[in-house]
């Protein structure tokens, strides 16, 4: 084995971690947006992510890009088709997210905090079990969306998929930030998350805004689902469970309700998991997210970039 310097090794883990963290961030945004508006931990978000990769998989299957039963390698999906599949998955997930909100959460909007939380758990279970019934429990091989090329940057190996992941995430996050801060629907979202009642009095269509929030978060989850599936090419109905929990932790660590917070939290988690796993023991990397979580909550309960509120008596 070639001698690899510690710096190179660490840099390697960091770059891997940035890619992983980008997918956390994309998912974390969905949690943060919904929590900001409804104060609801949308457990079903992780399953929307799972749906995203299945939607892309089915489109690829119908278009004939899956390996056939003889195991002959299918051709690489051309870029314009990839774009089409991703757009399709985003649209389908946006719809799914809106449906979930409409059917399961909206009837409970005035029923306190606990009932919607349990309902969210119910929806999450429903999609997990339902996914197992509909898609089958065995992992499905994802089609080749991009031929893997590994670049070498002074000893640090960077696969092109990682570059796609980071660039796509970055573009989407910037787009979202622009949308929320500079457009009218974005302003409505901010108004709702600041104070829903006042927003309604000021003429904001609250229901439409909440639907929009779910649509956006779900579409981003779909992208995350495709990106991850592209990178590690097997998908299962339970693939959302772990990344969902971690992405939510990322949102809390960064400061729930804050988009830059979600990005920061995601990156922080991704990088530290990757470094701990590489330098120490993979088992411990699983605990990193939660250790971060508890330390941050105890030091600054509202998260790194979150604003704290003080109760008036």
């Amino acid at each position: 084995m070639a001698e690899v310097s510690l710096t190179t090794e660490v840099l390697q883990y960091v770059t891997n971690g940035v890619a992983k963290g980008s997918t956390y961030a994309l998912m974390a945004v969905g949690y943060t947006l919904v929590y900001g508006v409804l104060q609801l931990i949308n457990f079903a978000h992780a399953e929307v992510y799972m749906l995203g990769s299945y939607f892309a998989w089915y489109q690829a299957k119908w278009a004939g890009y899956l390996p056939d039963s003889k195991g002959a390698r299918a051709e690489t999906v051309p870029l314009y088709m990839v774009a089409l599949f991703v757009a399709g998955a985003m649209a389908a997930c946006a719809l799914a997210g809106m449906l979930i909100e409409r059917l399961a959460y909206r009837p409970l909007r005035n029923a306190g905090r606990l009932a919607p939380l349990i309902t969210a758990i119910g929806v999450s279970l429903l999609l997990q079990y339902g996914g197992q019934v509909v898609f089958g429990t065995e992992p499905k091989l994802f089609p080749t969306f991009a031929e893997t090329v590994v670049y070498d940057a002074g000893g640090v190996k960077i696969p092109n998929t990682n570059i796609y992941i980071v660039v796509t995430s970055l573009v989407l996050m910037l787009g979202l930030t622009f949308f929320v801060n500079k457009t009218r629907p974005g302003a409505a979202m901010r108004a709702c998350s600041h104070d829903m009642r006042t927003a309604r009095l000021m003429g904001v269509n609250v229901n439409a805004t909440i639907s929009l929030t779910f649509a956006i978060g779900s579409a981003l989850a779909a992208v995350a689902g495709v990106l991850v599936a592209m990178d590690q090419p097997a998908i299962t109905p339970l693939m959302g469970v772990r990344i969902g929990l971690k992405a939510f932790v990322a949102a809390v660590v960064g400061g729930i309700g804050s988009i830059p917070g979600a990005a920061l939290g995601g990156l922080l988690l991704g990088v530290s998991e990757s470094v701990v796993s590489g330098l120490w023991k993979p088992v411990y990397s699983e605990a990193v997210a939660f250790v971060f979580l508890i330390v941050v909550l105890l030091v600054k309960p509202s998260g790194i970039l979150g604003k704290s509120v003080r109760e008036k008596v």
């Binding site: 009932a115 349990i118 309902t119 119910g122 279970l125 079990y129």
Partner: peptide, 12 residues
């Protein structure tokens, strides 16, 4: 699946 559905319906 039915169990999850019942949970949701019950909560709603």
């Amino acid at each position: 699946v039915v169990y999850a559905l019942l949970l949701i319906v019950m909560m709603v």
